[in-house]
Design a protein around this nucleic acid. Structure first.
Lengths: 174, 174
DNA sequence: GACAGAACTGTCCGATCGGTCAGTTATCGT
DNA sequence: ACGATAACTGACCGATCGGACAGTTCTGTC
């Protein structure tokens, strides 16, 4: 039942945003009462946090895997890892874009300001060289956009194309 | 008074999103009653529309100026024009990112789907060649990100850097 | 069958939302 | 000074929100 609630919440949040989805909307979609939601989850924010928790965990492990790497190798691994992550967490990403400010205070989400600065760097052409975290976030936010409007990227070909595109944006040869 | 309301609404919408800003918030910021807002504007949506109307108008004139151009010249002019526009309409852009879905139905906003498709093309490395409108939108949405979190781009140097960065993203020599 | 505890629900609550409206105040041409 | 009109407001409305809570149903154990 918890899983059903999370699934419905994920789909509805991705479709209409966090603020655009009420507890009653989720309850109707699940097929239970609103009170039942609040039995399994302490409040609406908790549902959202639980949806984003895996992202934070996976990103931390990704960073650990990137830590020993350096230079171009680190940037390549960061981009590849983030492309994979953002495609798998496509709906969470869409929620993020639909209702950014509602999520900024959630501790599960790593700092968004860093992402923005990194993206500005990337747009200006200054590619961060020694910090894979920044490169990863930049690519992550870039992919965010492609997934935000529900653009379908189902197959491996498209995934590879996206990766090489991100490489090119980073100034790396693909 | 209308101008005061629009100014407050623009600042608050950009800070907390459209849904995150109530009429009472705007009224308190302006220093008048909520009812006064609805005397000058028929409803909340109208305030938003009025904030975005200039963007649509300016973009149309930009497109007309780009119409006779072709090839690289068209792409260059499109990027330069859009960079300029998006910097001047920075706060509207931030509203767009903070509450995308609330704005999709507003006729004043040109089609967002086209923007997304163009951005996907750009990320994958397929730069549109013959349609300056698409290239322009892609660059516009790219700049959107830099302005979304209130990153300060005050001086001409930074503006030129952004333009050349967009050129590079488009695969053009700067 | 008796019981315990988990699962679930109907109902109510205070707060807040966008919006309406009758009535008041300020402004201005005459 | 006065009437007309624009500008503005306080009070109120229905709807909806997230959440609280007492009470009911389901499920498994002995």
């Amino acid at each position: 039942m918890r899983a059903d609630i999370l699934e419905s919440a994920l789909r509805l949040f991705a479709a209409h945003g966090f603020r655009g989805t009420s507890l009653q909307d989720i309850a109707s979609d699940v097929g239970c009462s609103k009170a039942s939601l609040l039995y399994h989850f302490t409040n609406k924010d908790t549902i959202l946090s639980e949806l984003f928790a895996p992202i934070g965990q996976e990103f931390e492990t990704l960073l650990q895997r990137l830590a020993p790497l350096q230079g171009e190798e680190a940037a390549r691994a960061a981009v590849a890892g983030v492309v994979d992550m953002s495609l798998r967490f496509r709906r969470q990403v869409k929620i993020l874009l639909l209702d950014v400010d509602a999520l900024l205070d959630h501790p599960e989400l790593p700092c968004v300001d860093d992402v923005t600065e990194a993206l500005v760097d990337a747009m200006v052409g200054r590619v961060p060289e020694q910090e894979p975290r920044v490169a990863g976030w930049m690519a992550l936010l870039g992919i965010f956009l492609t997934t935000a409007r529900g653009v379908a990227i189902p197959d491996e070909t498209m995934r590879a194309e996206l990766t090489s595109g991100a490489f090119r944006t980073l100034g790396l040869s693909s």
